[in-house]
Nucleic acid binder design. Structure first.
Length: 858
RNA sequence: GCCCGCUUGGCGGAAUUGGCAGACGCAACGGACUUAAAAUCCGUUUCCUCCGGGAGUGGGGGUUCGAGUCCCCCAGCGGGCACCA
C-alpha cells in the first residue's frame, strides 16, 4: 500500500501545464468567454490562508468553466503601490521598489505552487511604469473632461501616516490603516468627481442581480440618497442668501432658527470681524470626528446676530447660529431648525430658548390634546400626520405638504425640490512616495499644466530617503524642479501621488491587453469584459467596488470602455479563522508552538500549560496563523485546496483545523488507492455503457455516477463547493463498495473512476491529472470536457415515500415512480405501523403527494 | 438609534425551497489487522427511554394535512451606517 507522492506529482503536472501553455487565453469570438477574477493581492511578503481560500475558489470556477467549453480568462497581478513598502524602507533601509518586487517574486512562486490555472503571461504590477503610465494618461483625460479637479478642502489628515485619507478610509474617526485619530486640515487636493455618478451608481445596483444583497445594501447606504428641497433664505440686512437643504420642507412654518456649519463661508466671513466667533469656530475644528467625540460633544451654537427672512411669513426673522453639529460637506452646510419635529433641533431650541411650534398633528389626536400633552415637551414628533399652524398647508398630509411647499418655493424663486447624496467626491491626493505620480506641473504663470502625453510616464525617482517624515518626493533635490511645458519657465511637479485605490479601479480592464500601448484595447476589452465572476473579501464591499464601478463609468465617458458595470457577478468569501493560544503570561503563541497531543494544550518547548482562546480571523497580532507554504510542503497543494473547499460554505468563515487537513489528506490517499492502484484493463478508455442496457448492481452504480455529475455540476454553478465535495465523497464511497465486491464490470468501474476524476479535477487538479494518466490517458485532464449526466440514469423507477399519521412518520413504502394516488394510498394504509397508529379508527383524510409522501389524517 | 444577516448533534455543516431532519466530514468510542505503533479496514455515535416508544432545528405563539423552511413576538450573536438636516 503506497502513499500518493504529492511532491513529485505536483511539480510534474505544474510543469506539464506550463509547457503546453494550457491556461493562456486569447480572444476567440466563436467561443463563449468567461472572465474569472479574484481580487489581486497586495505583495506584503508571503501569501496567507485568505489568499489560498480566495484563489482556490476562483481556480475551481476557472477550471470548471474551462471544462464546460468556455474561453476562460483567469489572470493574476499585484496591487503593488502602498504604504507598507515605505514603512519597510524606513525600518530596514531598503528601497520600496526592491522590497515590493522581492515580495512579488516570493508570492508568485507560492501561488504557482498552488497549481492555479492562471494565464501568467498577463501578469501586471501596478507599481510598474508600464501600468501606471496609462493611469496617468487616463487621469489627464479625466482632467480635460472636468472629471478630475483640484480644490482647497477640509481633509482627513492621518498624523501617523502623514497623509490625507478619503472619507471611506476613515473608520470611527481613525485611519483605516494606522488607527490614528484623524485631524481636520485644509489643503489643496485632487478629486475625482464620483458624485456626478451618484445617481447612476445607485440606480444600477438594482441590475447587479449576481451580487450579494448585502453588498448592494451597503453601497446603497453609502451613496445615501435623500429627497428634499433647497430653500434660499434672504439674510436680513445683507445681499447674499442663505441656502439650506432639508428633507422636511413641509415643516417650514415650524422653523425657529437657522444654523450653519463652522466651515461655512458665511461663518468664515463673519469671523473676520468677530474674535468671539473666530474662537468658537477654532474650538469646533479641534473636536474630533470620532464616535466618542460626537456622542459626548454638546450641541452648541453661536448666535451670529443675523436673521434669515421666512419666505412665507412677512416679518418673521429666524436667528442664524453657527452650530457645531452642522456638517459643511453634507447638503449645503446649512439647515433650518424645526424643533417640534426634529429631536436635535428641539434640544438646541431648549438650550437657547427658541420657540417650539408644532406643525404636524399625529393621526387620531386632537389639536388641543397634542398641544397640551407631552408631544413636544422634550420629545420631538417625527411621525406622519396632518399639517397645522401652516397657512396654505393646513390640513394636508406630510407628503402632500412637501409637494405643495416645493411648488410654492419654486414660484417664489426661493427654492425647489432637490436630491442630496451622502457620497462625496473622491479625494485621491496622497502625500506619499510609493504611488502613481499625478502628472501635472504647477507653474507660477500658467497655473496647473498637464504633463504632455509624450512625456509620460512621470516615473518615481529611485534615489529617495526616508530618514525624515513627510513626502520624499517633496524633499527630493531635483525631481520636482522642471520647466513649465507651456511657457518654459520654472515649474514644480505635483508631488502628491494617487490613492492606491485608483490603481485597483481599472486593473481588471488592463488584464485584457496587459502589454498594449494604450490603457486598453477596445476590441479586447469588449470581448472579455465584464468580469463574469469576481471573488474577494467583504471588506471591499464599499471602497474598492464602488470606486471600480465609478472608474468604469469614467472610462466609458472617455471612450476607453464600452461597459459601465465591470463585475457582473460578485462573490464575497468568508475569512479563515483559527483558535488563539496564550501562555501563562498572556503572550500570544503560534499554533506551531503548541502541543495539542495530550489531554491539555502545552507549550511545545517549555511544556507549560497553554490557554486556548476562541477562534478568530487569522491575524499576525494574535499569532493564530498557519503558513500556507508549510501546509503545501507537508500535505501538498491539493490537500490544502480540498480542505479549503470542504465543510464550510464559501461565504462563511472557515475554521482551519489540523484534523480537517488530515481528513482531506486521507481522502487524497483513499482516491489514490482506489483508482491509482486499481488494475483496470487499459483498453477502451472512456467506454461507457449505452444507457438502459445495464441492470442490477451495474445500473445502481451508473445511477450514482450520473446523479453525482448532475449534483456536483449544480453545486458548482451555485457556489455550493462544500456540497460538491460531499457528493464527490459519496460517489467515492459507492465506487469503493462496489469495487470491493466485484459486482460490476470493468467498463462500469472505469466509467465511475473516470467520472470521479473529472469531478474532483477542479478541486485537486494535480492528483486528478495523475489518476487520469493512471487510467491510461495520454492527454491532460485539463483539456478534457466536463462529464454530461445522462438523463436516462437520473430518472428513478422506484421511489421511497414516507408515510405519516397526523404528520408523524410511521413507515416508508417503495413504489414505482409515478404510481397512482390510489395505489400509494392503499400501500400506505396497509403498513403495519400505520394500522397500529390508527388503532381501528377510520382515516378522515389521506393526503398523497406523488413520489414524495403520504399523510394519513385521523 | 437606524438598516441587514445569522442561530440545526460534541464540532463544521446537509436537507431537491413547505414533504422521511442530521447527507458528507471532523472528533469520540468499539472491533479487525499488527509483537507493538502508525497507516488501513469494519462498526456505533441527536437526546431521553420502563426498549413499547417519546422528544427534538435559540425561546414563545400562529398558519397548514404537514414547518428547520412561511407569519408575529422575544432572546442571543455578527455586520453595516450614524451630529446626514
Amino acid at each position: 500500500m503506497s502513499r500518493y507522492n504529492f511532491k513529485d506529482s505536483e511539480r510534474a503536472w505544474q510543469a506539464a501545464w506550463q509547457e503546453r501553455n494550457c491556461f493562456a487565453a486569447d480572444v476567440d469570438p466563436a467561443r463563449p468567454k468567461y472572465y474569472v477574477l479574484e481580487m489581486f493581492p497586495y505583495p506584503s511578503g508571503r501569501i496567507h490562508m485568505g489568499h489560498v481560500r480566495n484563489y482556490t475558489l476562483g481556480d475551481v470556477i476557472a477550471r470548471y468553466k474551462r471544462a464546460r467549453g468556455y474561453n476562460v480568462l483567469h489572470p493574476m497581478g499585484w496591487d503593488a503601490f502602498g504604504l507598507p513598502a515605505e514603512n519597510a524602507a524606513i525600518e530596514r533601509g531598503t528601497n520600496p521598489a526592491d522590497w515590493t518586487y522581492g515580495n512579488i517574486a516570493t508570492m508568485r512562486r507560492q501561488l504557482q505552487s498552488m497549481g492555479l490555472s492562471i494565464d501568467w503571461s498577463r501578469e501586471i504590477a501596478t507599481c510598474h511604469p508600464g501600468y501606471y503610465r496609462h493611469q496617468q494618461a487616463m487621469f489627464l483625460h479625466f482632467l480635460k473632461d472636468g472629471l478630475a479637479y483640484r480644490r482647497e478642502s477640509w481633509v482627513n489628515w492621518d498624523p501617523v501616516d502623514n497623509t490625507v485619507l478619503a472619507n471611506e478610509q476613515v473608520i470611527d474617526g481613525r485611519g483605516w490603516r494606522s488607527g490614528a485619530l484623524i485631524e481636520r486640515r485644509k489643503l489643496s487636493q485632487w478629486f475625482l468627481r464620483i458624485t456626478a455618478d451618484a445617481e447612476s451608481l445607485l440606480d444600477a445596483l438594482a441590475g447587479l442581480d449576481r451580487w450579494p444583497e448585502r453588498v448592494r445594501l451597503m453601497q446603497q447606504n453609502w451613496i445615501g440618497r435623500s429627497e428634499g428641497a433647497r430653500i434660499r433664505f434672504a439674510v436680513d440686512g445683507r445681499d447674499d442668501a442663505l441656502e439650506v437643504f432639508t428633507t422636511r420642507h413641509d415643516t417650514l412654518f415650524g422653523a425657529s432658527f437657522c444654523a450653519i456649519s463652522p466651515n461655512h463661508p458665511l461663518a468664515g466671513a463673519l469671523a473676520e470681524g468677530d474674535p468671539a466667533l473666530a474662537g468658537f469656530i477654532a474650538e469646533c475644528s479641534r473636536l474630533g470626528t470620532s464616535e466618542e467625540a460626537i456622542e459626548t460633544a454638546e450641541k452648541r451654537g453661536f448666535d451670529t446676530g443675523l436673521g434669515a427672512r421666512h419666505p412665507f411669513v412677512e416679518g418673521r426673522l429666524l436667528p442664524i447660529y453657527v452650530a457645531n453639529f452642522v456638517l459643511m460637506d453634507y447638503g449645503t452646510g446649512a439647515i433650518f431648525g424645526c424643533p417640534a419635529h426634529d429631536q436635535r433641533d428641539l434640544d438646541f431650541a431648549r438650550k437657547y430658548g427658541l420657540p417650539v411650534t408644532p406643525v404636524i398633528l399625529p393621526e387620531g389626536t386632537s389639536a388641543e390634546a397634542f398641544l397640551q400633552g407631552p408631544g413636544v415637551g422634550s420629545e420631538a414628533y417625527v411621525g406622519p400626520g396632518t399639517l397645522i399652524n401652516s397657512a396654505f398647508l393646513d390640513g394636508m398630509s406630510v407628503g402632500a405638504a412637501k409637494a405643495e411647499m416645493a411648488k410654492r418655493l419654486a414660484a417664489l424663486g426661493a427654492g425647489e425640490a432637490a436630491v442630496t447624496y451622502r457620497l462625496r467626491d473622491w479625494g485621491i491626493s496622497r502625500q506619499r512616495y510609493w504611488g502613481c505620480p499625478i502628472p501635472v506641473i504647477h507653474c507660477p504663470s500658467c497655473g496647473i499644466v498637464p504633463v504632455p502625453e509624450a512625456d509620460l510616464p512621470v516615473t518615481l525617482p529611485d534615489d529617495v530617503s526616508f530618514e525624515e517624515p513627510g513626502n520624499p518626493l517633496d524633499r527630493h533635490p531635483t525631481w520636482k524642479h522642471v520647466s513649465c511645458p507651456r511657457c518654459g519657465g520654472d515649474g514644480r511637479r505635483e508631488t502628491d501621488t494617487m490613492d492606491t485605490f485608483v490603481d485597483s479601479s481599472w486593473y481588471y480592464a488592463r488584464y485584457c491587453s496587459p502589454r498594449a500601448d494604450a490603457p486598453v484595447v477596445r476590441a479586447e476589452a469588449d470581448y472579455w469584459l465584464p468580469v463574469d465572476q469576481y471573488i474577494g473579501g467583504i471588506e471591499h464591499a464599499i471602497l474598492h467596488l464602488l470606486y471600480s464601478r465609478f472608474f468604469a463609468r469614467a472610462m466609458v465617458r472617455a471612450g476607453y470602455l464600452g461597459i459601465e458595470e465591470p463585475f457582473s457577478g460578485l462573490f464575497t468569501q468568508g475569512m479563515v479563522c483559527h483558535e488563539t493560544y496564550r501562555d501563562e503570561r498572556g503572550k500570544w503563541l503560534f499554533p506551531s508552538e503548541v502541543d495539542m497531543s495530550g489531554a491539555e494544550a502545552r507549550h511545545l518547548e517549555t511544556g507549560r500549560p497553554v490557554t486556548i482562546g476562541r477562534s478568530e480571523s487569522m491575524s499576525k497580532s494574535k499569532r493564530n496563523v498557519v503558513d500556507p507554504e508549510t501546509i503545501i510542503e507537508t500535505y501538498g497543494a491539493d490537500t490544502a485546496r480540498l480542505f479549503m473547499m470542504s465543510d464550510s460554505p464559501p461565504e462563511r468563515d472557515l475554521e482551519w483545523t489540523e484534523a480537517g487537513v488530515e481528513g482531506a489528506w486521507r481522502y487524497l490517499n483513499r482516491l489514490w488507492r482506489l483508482i491509482g492502484e486499481n488494475e483496470l484493463p487499459l483498453t477502451a478508455p472512456g467506454g461507457a455503457n449505452g444507457s438502459g442496457q445495464a441492470d442490477g448492481a451495474a445500473l445502481d452504480v451508473l445511477r450514482e455516477i450520473h446523479r453525482a455529475i448532475d449534483r456536483v455540476s449544480d453545486d458548482l454553478e451555485k457556489f455550493g463547493f462544500n456540497r460538491a465535495v460531499a457528493r464527490m465523497r459519496e460517489l467515492t464511497n459507492t465506487l469503493a463498495d462496489f469495487t470491493a465486491t466485484d459486482a460490476v464490470s470493468a467498463e462500469v468501474r472505469r466509467e465511475g473512476f473516470e467520472t470521479l476524476v473529472k469531478l474532483v479535477g477542479p478541486f485537486m487538479p494535480h492528483i486528478a491529472e495523475a489518476l487520469w494518466q493512471r487510467l491510461g490517458h495520454d492527454g491532460l485532464l485539463a483539456d478534457e470536457a466536463w462529464p454530461e449526466a445522462d438523463p436516462a440514469y437520473l430518472a428513478q423507477d422506484t421511489v421511497t415515500l414516507g408515510v405519516q399519521v397526523n404528520g408523524k412518520l410511521r413507515g416508508t413504502i417503495a413504489l414505482a415512480a409515478g404510481s397512482a394516488e390510489a395505489e400509494s394510498r392503499a400501500a400506505a394504509l396497509a403498513l403495519p405501523g400505520v394500522v397500529a397508529a390508527l388503532a381501528g379508527r377510520e382515516p378522515r383524510k389521506v393526503i398523497v403527494v406523488p413520489d414524495r409522501i403520504v399523510n394519513v389524517v385521523v
